[in-house]
Every structure is written in structure tokens, then in C-alpha cells.
Simulated assay, not measured.
Amino acid sequence: MLSIKLPQIFDVHQVPKVFWEDGIISGYRHPHSSALDCVLSSFQMTNETMNIWTHFLPTWYFLWRFVILCSTLTSLSDSYTWPLLVYMLLICVYPFTSSCAHTFSAMSAESYHICYFFDYGALSLYSLGCAMSYGSYMMPDSWVNSWLHQHFVPIAVGNSVFCTSLSCYSRFLELQCPQRSKALRTAAFVVPFIFDTVPLFYRILLFFGGGSTDHLSNHCYHLLFAVLSCFLFTSHLPERLAPGRFDYFGHSHQLFHICTVAGTHFQMEAVLADMTSRRAWLTAQGATPSFLGTFGALVVSLTLNLGIIGIFSAPLLRKPRNHCFSFNPST
């Protein structure tokens, strides 16, 4: 009978320091795992298993919503729907890329960094998708056709390049300056988030000033989960309070994944509602998205981000094998 032997797992002091996570004591995979071992490890309990599944399963939910959306559109040539299509595509890409990064990051110290380079690149593209949808469907009435509205997507492309560059660079500081590395990585994602949500913040201020309340509840839920996600990402709670207690279930990165997915769900519902309810008014204002400002911007951003990932990956790929981090499971 065919039998499959699951990979061995290790404690924190049995793996190189580059793999260490704050407050996580056990459940580490072999730091030179094969691709097959990485896949098999997703079906055993390690400290990465829930990280893999909390983004892999939502990928299929978002993909299902994307397929349903495409089937309901009367024509894919309708330029008004293009920002939505780009956004929906990217909310499928970022959790899938994250799941793959967590799955295959144990192949080597170099792959550990490169996998997360791609993860950061996918999140940067997601921020661009948010900017496209916000700029196309959520811009306050008084801002439509303004300078900011016309340049919202080009600035977002620049933000995506900034995000990927700074977050990838932060990984090279992780061992020597962990606090600076975390601060730079957090800033890399907070800056695009703040820029993307400027129109939303303004609409919320209008609401408190007596303006329209259309669809703001889902937006507020999204912002709540975004704040929780940032807190969990930076605090490493609860595992820092009780090291070893949350190695497999309930540590901050798992909760971070759950909050990001929940926030994206509410954001998606808000985008769909605004896109439908404001169509007639936005079209009448001549605020019709262009091919260059949607798919063109996506291609440009994708090309630039892949180039950045290649630049940061090159020195790791050129590193001789005998310079890799040593591994002694008996220590």
C-alpha cells in the first residue's frame, strides 16, 4: 500500500535564525525542504499550516465571486466595469500568492526571502486595484474630474513601486535591525493604504457632517478590519505574551490573514454597491475609465514590480550554496 511520510518538524533553536518568528517556539519545517515536502507540510500541523489555508481557501471564494461577476456583465467591452474587473482579479491574486509564499518559503533561506518578495508584490498590485476602484466609483462628487481624480491611478502606480521596493529592502535588515525592518515594511503598506482611502475618509467626514450615508457601513467595516490587521502585523500578539502557546493556532499572523480577508470582503461589497448605484451620475459627468488607466496601468505596474523583485532576488540567487545558512537539527 502506498504510504506518504510527512516531513519532520523542528523547534526554533533547531533552525537558522532567519526563519525565527517572535513568540513561536515549535512547529518549524526543515529549512531545506523540497517542493513536495512543502506541499505535504500544508496537510500536517506546523506553525505555517493555518497561514497557508487562511489565504488559500478565501482565494476560491473571491474567484467564485469574480466568475459570477463576469457571467452577469452584459459586455466586457463596457469600460465602466474595467476598474472593477481589475480589482476583482487582484483580490484573487494576493491571497493565492500569500498562500504559495507560506507554502514554499521553507525550501531555503534564499527562497524564504524571494517567496515573500512575490507576496509583497501581489499586495502592492492589490493596492493599485483598490485605487482604481476607489478612484472610479467612490470619489466624492466635488472631487470628480479634479486634478486628484485624473492623477489618482498614476500616483497609485508609483505607490505600488514604492511599496514593493521598500518592503523587499526591509527583508535585508531583518536579522541586524529587526525593529527598523518591521517599521519600514509597515510603512510600505500603510502609505498606499492611506492614499487609496483618502476619498473614503472624506466621504465619512461628509457623513458626520450630515452628508449621504450610502454604503458607508461596509466601508467602515473594511476600515475596522484594516486597523486590526495593522495592529496584529506589528504587535505579534498574543504569542509574544505567551511564547509557545500559540505556535499552531491563534498566533498573530493567522489572525492577520483572517482580518485582511474579512476586510477585503466588506471592501468588495462596498465597491460593488457604489459601482452600481453611482453609475448613471458618474457616466453623466464623463468620468469614464480608459483602457490605459485600467489594464494599461496594471500591465505597467506588474512589469515594474516584477523588475523590482528581480533586482532584489538576483543577489540571493547568485549566492553560492556553501554560503547558505547552516542547519544542525541536533542543536
Rank of each mutant, 00 (worst) to 15 (best):
L2T: 09
P7S: 15
Q8T: 15
I9V: 15
D11S: 15
V12T: 14
F19Q: 08
W20M: 08
E21W: 11
E21V: 10
S26C: 02
G27R: 02
R29I: 04
R29W: 03
H30I: 01
S41H: 07
S41N: 06
F43H: 02
M45T: 08
M50R: 03
N51M: 09
I52S: 07
F56N: 02
P58D: 05
F66A: 10
I68R: 07
S77K: 05
W82A: 05
P83F: 04
L85H: 11
V86W: 12
L90M: 11
I91Q: 06
P95A: 02
A101D: 04
T103N: 04
S108L: 05
Y112N: 10
I114K: 04
Y116N: 06
F118H: 13
G121W: 12
S124K: 10
Y126C: 13
S133I: 09
G135W: 02
M138N: 10
P140V: 08
D141S: 09
N145M: 01
V157H: 11
G158W: 11
C163K: 05
S165G: 14
L166A: 10
P178L: 00
Q179I: 00
L184R: 00
R185Y: 01
P192A: 00
F193V: 00
I194R: 00
F201N: 05
I204S: 10
G209S: 08
S212H: 07
T213R: 08
N218P: 09
H219V: 13
H219Y: 09
C220Y: 05
H222F: 12
F233N: 09
T234A: 12
S235F: 10
L237R: 09
E239G: 09
A242T: 12
D247M: 04
Y248W: 02
G250S: 04
G250F: 04
S252Y: 12
Q254A: 11
C259R: 00
V261S: 00
G263A: 00
Q267S: 03
M268G: 02
E269M: 07
L272C: 08
L272F: 10
T276I: 08
T276A: 14
R278H: 10
R279K: 06
Q285S: 14
A287F: 15
S290P: 01
F291Y: 06
L292Q: 10
G293I: 01
F295N: 08
A297C: 09
A297S: 13
V299W: 13
V300M: 13
G307T: 02
A314Q: 04
P315N: 02
R318W: 13
R318L: 10
N322F: 15
S330L: 10
